[in-house]
Amino acid sequence: MSEYSEPTSQPGGAPPAPLWEVFVRARRGLAHTHVGSLHAADAELALHNARDLYTRRQEGVSIWVLPAAAITASSPDEKDAFFDPAADKVYRHPTFYEVPEGAAHL
């Protein structure tokens, strides 16, 4: 990229955070579906990260994060604080914006 480059991995730095697979239940009545993965040091962090990464547009009512062996599920009673806040972010959806008359392909 640039003419100078430097080594960046710090010797003695933290081990890379483990990978977690993320499963989201989109609505009640549907099964959890795999949506992707992320990195986090532990399950609690993984859940927080999954909520922020994969449910910014109210895509889910429940999240599971799965490390190599164990499944951790977001508990149902935390649901409100966990998922409601995305409800008012209408500006995240393209239909929030008025497309001026005559403008195509947007």
Binding site: S2, T8, Q10, G13, A14, A17, A41, D42, L45
Partner: peptide, 27 residues
């Protein structure tokens, strides 16, 4: 802005190292 963008990214990564280490140690 090549240099600026890369330095910004490197710096965030470098300055976050102790936080990532703390998370790993806690886990």
């Amino acid at each position: 802005c090549n240099r600026q963008r890369m330095e910004h990214r490197r710096r965030a990564h470098r300055e976050g190292a102790w936080v990532r280490a703390a998370a790993a140690a806690y886990a």
